[in-house]
Design a protein around this nucleic acid. Structure first.
Lengths: 348, 348
DNA sequence: TTGAAAGCGTTACCAT
DNA sequence: ATGGTAACGCTTTCAA
């Protein structure tokens, strides 16, 4: 037995009206007389009428669904983003379909196919680490699908972008490290083709240059899978230490890389912040509980999700084609904690 | 411009066949001749035909959607559960709609209304802390909606249940604390009406009794909002310490409570595990990075999500009404770490 | 083996 | 202001 709601036809029959009249009365069309409208609405409420969304979608050619593609849900940053998306979708009566790319280009394409098949009205996407070419997304966009990029964005085609101020965040963090007296600052980061990587490196280099510090490319370690493979982080860290000239601080450029690096440093028995300073981008909920309490750059993930969803729905519901696109850049927040505080353990 | 896929009618027209023949050919019905079927399939593949799911759903009265209700997405435990659900749904071609109750009974009801309106084929639900009465869910179930409870379950009506071995986990953890020499062990926990609370208290009491320890009800602190309000955790902790007879260890019964309690203890300047032992249920990804490394009971969240989704889909697709229900209980995993290791700082 | 047609619940156009 | 009807894309019963 399936859950069967009352339909327009039932109301029409009960009230001896035509389908169209009932439909119009419920939609609040003005070409319906007061008494009839009231009668219909009263009956509908009383019998708990709910329009069948499937039928509406089929008829209207919209699904009131928005698709989301991101690398993986349990990642603190993305989980918060989802929560933000959901909060907007909920109030605007959209449904959210979340799919995970697991940092794979292949799976990102699959996810997109799946979503379009499901007839979504719009797409929110953060690229996988493997994705350097966006033609699969551009094709959908060209066919008229509203798209908003968030976090890992692309400028392959014009659309709204929602991102953190990665350059600013990296700049702030690098500056903080410099102020603490660190000089050989390494960055462990995602693949070079990603927007977030480029920006985080730009901010890092800017801070170094302004401080008159040399830029040593060998201190920048790219993890091709964004840290999905623990070994790639281990390799990065050991390369840094095995070089003749090891770093005195490490800046990790994402949540996964930050936790991975911290864990490896501790396993190596490094004293933080004494032997080496450690900080990173992270939306982990309680970094102050770590040993040592971790200096982080935090992105306003919930807000970013909210804004991305708002922009997308705006795009979906816009009557006229949108040609002016926004680039929303959210400030990041530096929280200095013990992991970069040399004064704790080093006299200098 | 909307994304327009090719339809059965288009194929029929192109191949000069009737709609029904095309439909049957695509479904692999055997009452279609080989050549016709091949021709249709070839054409469909070539033109990238995708059945319109909306139309199928409308016709078949199923949506291939499963609804999920849980308290909140960024919680590590639930985020992993979702990931598990998604992995099953993906392969079985179901869509997952996630809604959050934010621990509110009110919002849980709203979420359910929303989901049923969206015509879901089945429901996965973990009750909110405020929910003590399940008639809203029982009503849907009685109307024929397949339901699987996970995590915070109810036995108000018979259906599949997926849960962790909360009693066993609490028992193991309490035993571990006893072995470490702790004697006045407090539990900070969720509201008493929740299944998980009752089980976690049962395991705790069982371990104490077996060890011949007295059970002091004043050592059990219930947080009515499950720790959603930080103040309720603060109140619980200070009540424990302000009593004439403070505990020597605290066992927190959920992720949120564990992090909250640890954070409060550190703020109070308590030395862990010296002044007080601290451990809890937690699916936090890196509890060994904490200061002190945290002893935890971890639930197999991903597996639980997977199993719940499998059971639900089985229920949905079952031809005959299901009368035998399963109760899947997943073992928990105790990881003893520094936060309960007295030998580190206390000679005894 | 194939075709015609009705129907799922809605909306919208064209009548009245 | 209201009614009749076709259409959205698909499945399925009934006929041929």
């Amino acid at each position: 037995m399936k859950i069967q709601n009352i339909t327009i036809k039932d109301i029409a029959k009960a009230l001896d009206l035509s389908y169209s009249t009932v439909s119009r009365a419920l939609k609040g069309s003005y070409k319906i007389s007061e008494p009839v409208r009231n009668k219909v609405i009263a009956y509908a409420n009383e019998h708990n009428y709910r329009p069948n969304l499937l039928a509406q979608s089929l008829k209207n050619k919209n699904s009131r669904c928005i698709g989301v593609v991101l690398c993986n849900i349990p990642n603190s940053f993305f989980a918060e983003v989802i929560s933000g998306i959901e909060s907007v979708a909920y109030t605007k009566n959209y449904l959210v379909i979340i799919t995970q790319s697991h940092e794979s280009y292949e799976r990102e394409i699959q996810a997109l196919e799946n979503l379009t098949w499901r007839s979504i009205d719009g797409l929110l996407i953060s690229l996988s680490t493997e994705t350097s070419d966006c033609s699969h997304i551009a094709a959908l966009h060209a066919k008229g699908l509203p798209v908003v990029f968030f976090d890992r964005v692309s400028e392959d085609f014009k659309t709204h972008l929602v991102k953190a101020d990665n350059e600013g965040g990296a700049y702030d963090l690098t500056n903080h490290l410099l102020h603490q007296g660190y000089r050989r600052i390494a960055q462990i980061t995602s693949p070079a083709h990603l927007s977030i990587t480029q920006e985080r490196i730009a901010g890092y280099k800017k801070a170094l240059s302004e401080a008159g510090q040399p830029i040593d490319e060998s201190l920048i370690k790219y993890c091709e899978h964004g840290g999905m493979l623990f070994e790639e982080i281990e390799t990065a860290v050991s390369e840094l230490f095995d070089s003749g000239n090891p770093p005195d601080a490490i800046f990790a450029a994402s949540d996964r890389l930050t936790l991975g690096t911290l864990s490896i440093l501790k396993k190596m028995g490094k004293s933080i912040p004494g032997d080496i300073g450690m900080a990173g981008f992270s939306n982990f909920s309680e970094p102050e509980l770590f040993e040592p309490a971790l200096t982080t750059i935090k992105q306003p993930a919930f807000e970013m999700g909210k804004t991305a969803a708002e922009l997308l729905i705006q795009l979906i519901e816009s009557k006229r084609p949108v040609t002016e696109f926004e680039k929303k850049v959210f400030p990041t927040e530096l929280k200095a904690r013990a992991s970069t505080n040399r004064k704790i353990s080093v006299a200098y």
